[in-house]
Design a protein around this nucleic acid. Structure first.
Ligand SMILES: [Mn+2]
Ligand SMILES: [Mn+2]
Ligand SMILES: [Zn+2]
Ligand SMILES: [Zn+2]
Lengths: 139, 139
DNA sequence: AATATTTTGCAACAAAGTTGCATTGTTGTA
DNA sequence: TACAACAATGCAACTTTGTTGCAAAATATT
């Protein structure tokens, strides 16, 4: 597990630091997407807030994590699959945010459908975000 | 135009105030979606920041405007069509955010495709947000 | 092990968002 | 039109979130 994490950092040519290992392992352990605030709560005793901002930014740039847009001004981040690289994300799956528990899921098995845009518009990224009730909160 | 605006407010049983008329007319004039910050810039001399927060919240609750999720922690708001009402939005069109000029469009002519979710997940709202280059910024 | 490079923490700051309460504005009724 | 009831606004004070520069610490390279 620690090996896996250092391997990811090495692969993306990032120096291996405590903060990066810890934040990466948080994503790995929870399995779901995390907001900046979530990470801060789970590691505020270990690291400064600023380090978290900078680490998340680095991870996005390197293609280690991707962003998930939200309507509550709290972007979520989730681990990318192997195909993602610096400057080129390939996370074309659907995202789900539970209104009950707030958990944000990468629904890897459902891919984002292609849509045809009006003349003059060209797409670089498409995000499909669904909110509702997740399988754990289903009554 | 002023008539149209007061009619909307009346229809949703909101008292008619300067702030609400001004903010609604901003949406009407620009035609595109606006972030809180945009509205603040265009009306900061007329109204307090707090009033803008409260007005946007009221408009969303009443079904006058809808939110558009983003990955930059700055939710956009846009006018709803007539079918939206308090507690029930029906804005199932695609949204487009231009990476160049930042303009956010409601693409009314393209509707959000239905997707089948894994067992246990039930959707309440689906947002499809595309970013890229808009028809005005196309080289 | 010594040096070069990168990352981190801290401090100071700026921007964004929230809340309570007195004042002002709006609405419906007399 | 005047009045009372109610709702919206402005202001102040505050909290939370995000940014920046720089010295110290950690990591990588030789
Ligand atoms: Mn994802
Ligand atoms: Mn829209
Ligand atoms: Zn849930
Ligand atoms: Zn544009």
């Amino acid at each position: 597990m620690q090996d896996k994490i250092t391997a990811i950092l090495r692969k993306h040519q990032l120096s291996i630091t405590e903060a990066r290992k810890k934040i990466l392992s948080l994503f790995w352990e929870t399995g779901n997407a995390l907001a900046h605030g979530d990470i801060e709560q789970k590691s505020s005793e270990d690291f400064d807030r600023v380090t978290i901002y900078r680490t998340l930014q680095t991870f996005v740039e390197k293609g280690i994590i991707h962003t998930i847009p939200t309507s509550d001004n709290s972007v979520r981040y989730a681990l990318c699959k192997d195909e993602c690289a610096a400057g080129h994300h390939h996370d074309d799956h659907v995202h789900f945010i539970c209104d009950d528990c707030g958990t944000t899921y990468c629904i890897d098995e459902v891919s984002v459908p292609k849509v045809k845009l009006p003349k003059g518009f060209s797409a670089i990224q498409t995000d499909l975000v669904i909110s509702g009730t997740c399988n754990k909160c289903e009554q």
